[in-house]
Design a protein around this nucleic acid. Structure first.
Lengths: 142, 142
DNA sequence: ACACAATTTTTCGGTTCACCTAAAAAATAT
DNA sequence: ATATTTTTTAGGTGAACCGAAAAATTGTGT
């Protein structure tokens, strides 16, 4: 208890993925990310520079960001982990979809694929999370 | 993927707790912690200084460290989370005790008490982890 | 359309945290 | 008493963050 609880680069990726899915083909603005993750715009810019160096994101100066194919794959994997975990909390622990949301916070970054797969099987290979959103498949088209 | 995977202060606490339980009433040496967590002794010293400022640990210069009551309580909570998670991987996901060990890595720091309690109930309130070690109770004597 | 105001993004110091390396200091072992 | 081991100190790195100020973009009024 009492930690800084920093955002993980994957959290940025996950949000960018979600936003770019829903509003078709545009760039995701820095301010949107900033607002969603609760960090300062300058922090987002810095993180985008790092992610861009790693080839996960394409940065357009003063314009926003877009995921590369690698970035998209990474984001989908994170989201998949996230939603499988949500299913678990909902189906196995019988929590409400609302409760579930808060509980995933940092866990999805620490679960191995091995565990994820087993969890998924045990839950009966659900197609959607408790909110009705689809669980993206690792290497398949969404 | 590709992160530094830093040790958490709670990892230090957890190890100190374990070591001080098994070898009765002595101080835990910096080198032991260093070896167990895979960090340099100077890193341990520094962390112990931080934990000592937070009142979780008592530092004896060149002698080692001992948990305070608060530190002990924190450590027990972490260990409890750790072992309940182990039970879960063992009982529900049917992994072997050996596999289980690697999987807990960072998860126990991100699970809320609410989820922990539910998990514990669902598993039938186990008294021991898959390795046969007891699950310490939050506010009770060990 | 165009100058000016408002907003967004970036840049540029700073901070904290976990960590490292090298060297100094203390404890221990021979 | 001296050599060995352990611990600490001191200086440095990279990551994630903030705040303030500069730069670019966007919005507005006439």
């Amino acid at each position: 208890m009492g930690y800084r609880e920093h955002k993980n680069p994957e959290d940025y990726l996950e949000f960018i993925y979600l936003r770019s899915e829903e509003s078709s083909k545009g760039l995701v603005k820095i301010k949107e990310i900033s607002g969603a993750l609760g960090v300062f715009p300058s922090t987002v810019t810095e993180m985008m520079q790092r992610l861009s160096e790693k080839g996960l994101v394409i940065r357009v100066d003063y314009g926003g960001v877009r995921l590369t194919e690698t970035g998209r794959a990474t984001a989908k994997a994170v989201l998949s982990r996230h939603r499988i975990l949500e299913c678990f909390f909902y189906q196995y622990l019988e929590m409400t979809p609302e409760e579930v949301a808060d509980e995933i916070c940092g866990i999805e970054h620490h679960i191995s694929d091995r565990v994820l797969v087993r969890l998924y099987e045990k839950l009966g290979r659900p197609k959607c999370c408790p909110h009705g959103k689809p669980i993206p498949m690792a290497s398949q088209g969404e």
